[in-house]
């Protein structure tokens, strides 16, 4: 159940691990924006973006199998794209004996290419940045403190809640609960409600623990090294590539 959502950090060291998190977050976002701007027919542009992503995955220390399994986790999200050529209108193209919408095929390609590249970018960030660094990076990017605190608390308690839900699931299954229809979902729903109360009461206890250590309403700001110009230069190289490719493609196509 929780497998796909486990944090994907690679416990190795690489030049990418050492880049300041705020620079990596910005770079990842802008790279995905560049890819999204690229016109779908500029296959060569996607190919160059793919080379960038693959090289960075290799530098980050992903083994091919590892990267593939992680890419597979996004399949459900793009599965819909596969149906587009069947249901879209417009000119038809014959492919494998099927008559498919030409525009639909391009649309399908568009979604798949862009999400594979976007997923690659996010895998590189997730693989080289511990959660605590991500939270710090958000802080340095001047995200409102309340958002940074919420993200920090969310990560701190996510695994605990997931594990607790998993145990509740197991406890239900162990007593023969195997829901197949919506109206059998009541135990799950009540469990979700109970989970919420438990999580909330835990929040109250955490708050007590914070008070006990002198908390007075604002989270102390933790110091850390700001991103160096080199970090920024490195992080912004992939987005410069993807955005330039998008612009070139828009002009020449």
């Amino acid at each position: 159940m929780a497998g796909a959502h486990r944090h994907l950090l690679l416990h190795t060291d690489s030049p990418l691990h050492r880049i300041a998190p705020e620079a990596k977050i910005v770079g990842t976002f802008l790279f995905a924006v560049g890819v999204a701007l690229t016109p779908r027919r500029a296959v060569w542009a996607f190919a160059i973006d793919a080379v960038v992503v693959l090289s960075l995955l290799a530098i980050a220390g992903y083994r091919p199998r590892q990267a593939l399994t992680r890419f597979a986790a996004v399949l459900p999200f793009v599965a819909f794209a596969v149906f587009i050529p069947f249901i879209a209108g417009g000119d038809k193209t014959d492919l494998f004996g099927l008559s498919l919408s030409t525009e639909g095929l391009w649309a399908s390609w568009n979604v798949i290419a862009k999400s594979v590249l976007g997923t690659g970018a996010s895998l590189i960030l997730a693989g080289t940045t511990p959660i605590s660094e991500v939270v710090r990076g958000l802080g340095r990017l001047r995200m409102p403190p309340i958002v940074v605190s919420i993200v920090a608390f969310m990560f701190r308690y996510l695994d605990l809640i997931v594990e607790e839900m998993g145990r509740m699931r197991v406890a239900m299954t162990a007593r023969g609960h195997d829901p197949r229809w919506l109206w059998q979902a009541k135990p799950i729903a009540s469990a979700a409600g109970a989970m919420f109360v438990r999580s909330y009461e835990r929040g109250e206890r955490v708050h007590s623990a914070m008070l006990a250590r002198g908390f007075s309403g604002t989270m102390p700001q933790m110091e850390h090294e700001p991103a160096s110009p080199t970090d920024w230069a490195r992080s912004l190289t992939p987005p410069v590539v993807s955005i330039s490719l998008a612009l070139v493609a828009l002009i020449i196509l």
Partner: peptide, 22 residues
């Protein structure tokens, strides 16, 4: 329950939380 007490992203920050509040 130690999980209620340790809420910062890293051990270092958690231990620094009290002194920072001081």
């Amino acid at each position: 329950n130690a999980d209620d007490q340790l809420f910062m992203p890293s051990v270092r920050e958690d231990v620094a939380f009290g002194p920072a509040n001081l």
